[in-house]
């Protein structure tokens, strides 16, 4: 069109010239559409970038939690392995698998309780199993209801150095120092409390609830001031709970709390399990009261206890 000879009429030229802007305008539009598409694309990329950042944030948080958990485990392992050989060999590792509950396999010799004491989904832990449980970890649940020392055999047993962060000794209990010197001769029913306690733990480990109950009860009777008495008493309650004897369980946990006081090891666990047993007995109000009392008296309870508390509360339908 624009190559027309110069003698073309003015009107035709005018038309031709008028056409040029039109052509240019079309070219602009097509450029503009590309630019617009890019603008929209930038928006999408920004959204994608935010999503990716979110993924990183979550992964980092998971990683940090796992690292903290591993550090805890490592410390606990150190604490146990630094204990005297006798203690380690007698308590065994991993100890008390029969009591460890939840996603882990049931204890081989356990009399297969129809209802495990804790619903497995939320917090239950065989050692380490929970760490890989991503959804739970995402919610901040890392430790289950089994206290660390139980998982790793750091039960403040005859070991001279209790695991870091172990609860203080109950009032009136004799000092722990020097007890490790006592060489344990595993004579059930003997005069040596450490040996007796170790024997009871062995029975727990085997899932021999009836014998464990008997041994623990006698231990608590014979050595009420032994540093392990609160633990023995607590596990005594567990032997009832695991066999669904909720009345004896509740009575035992309540008595434990009264006897050893709020500062003793497992004080918060006793209240937790008391509430649980009461709930199983259908005493909802009492159970909820107990949970409330636990929350009030033990605001610093381990996260394991607090998580279990939240779950049991919900299970019992506490308002």
């Amino acid at each position: 069109m624009r190559s027309r000879p110069a003698f073309v009429s003015a009107s035709v030229l005018a038309v031709a010239l008028a056409a040029i802007p039109v052509v240019v305008s079309f070219a602009q539009t097509s450029d503009a559409q590309r630019t617009a598409a890019l603008a929209a694309r930038v928006l999408e990329l920004e959204e994608e970038l935010r999503r990716l950042r979110g993924r990183i944030e979550t992964l980092e948080a998971d990683r940090d939690r796992l690292a903290a958990r591993l550090e805890e485990l490592a410390q606990a392992v150190r604490a146990t392995s630094e204990g005297p050989a006798t203690a380690t060999s007698e308590t065994g590792r991993p100890p008390l698998p029969a009591i460890a509950r939840g996603s882990g396999p049931p204890a081989p010799t356990a009399p297969a309780p129809s209802r495990p004491p804790q619903p497995p989904a939320a917090t239950g832990r065989a050692p380490l199993a929970g760490v890989e449980e991503d959804p739970a970890a995402r919610r901040g649940y890392v430790l289950g209801t089994i206290p660390r020392e139980a998982i790793l055999g750091g039960e403040p047993s005859p070991a001279p150095t209790p695991p870091t962060g172990a609860a203080p000794r109950p009032q009136g209990a004799p000092p722990r120092g020097g007890e490790s010197q006592t060489v344990a001769r595993a004579v059930p029913g003997g005069a040596d409390p450490n040996a007796r306690f170790a024997a009871a733990r062995e029975l727990l480990r085997k899932g021999d609830w009836a014998s464990a109950e008997e041994t623990l009860r006698r231990f608590v009777n014979d050595f009420p001031n032994d540093p392990n008495a609160p633990l023995a008493a607590y596990w005594l309650g567990e032997t009832y709970l695991v066999r669904e004897d909720y009345e004896n369980a509740a009575a035992t946990f309540a008595r434990n709390y009264r006897t050893f006081g709020p500062e003793a090891p497992r004080a918060a666990d006793n209240l937790l399990k008391l509430g649980e047993a009461l709930a199983r007995l259908g005493e909802k109000d009492k159970a909820c009261q107990t949970f409330t009392e636990l929350e009030r008296r033990h605001p610093d309870a381990s996260s394991a206890v607090r998580q279990a508390l939240a779950r049991e509360r919900a299970a019992a339908g506490c308002r």
């Binding site: 602009q28 539009t29 503009a32 559409q33 630019t35 617009a36 890019l38 603008a39 929209a40 928006l43």
Partner: peptide, 11 residues
């Protein structure tokens, strides 16, 4: 702003 940017990009 997303709408504005798109319209601006369209000229």
């Amino acid at each position: 702003q997303a709408v504005k940017n798109y319209l601006v990009a369209l000229g």
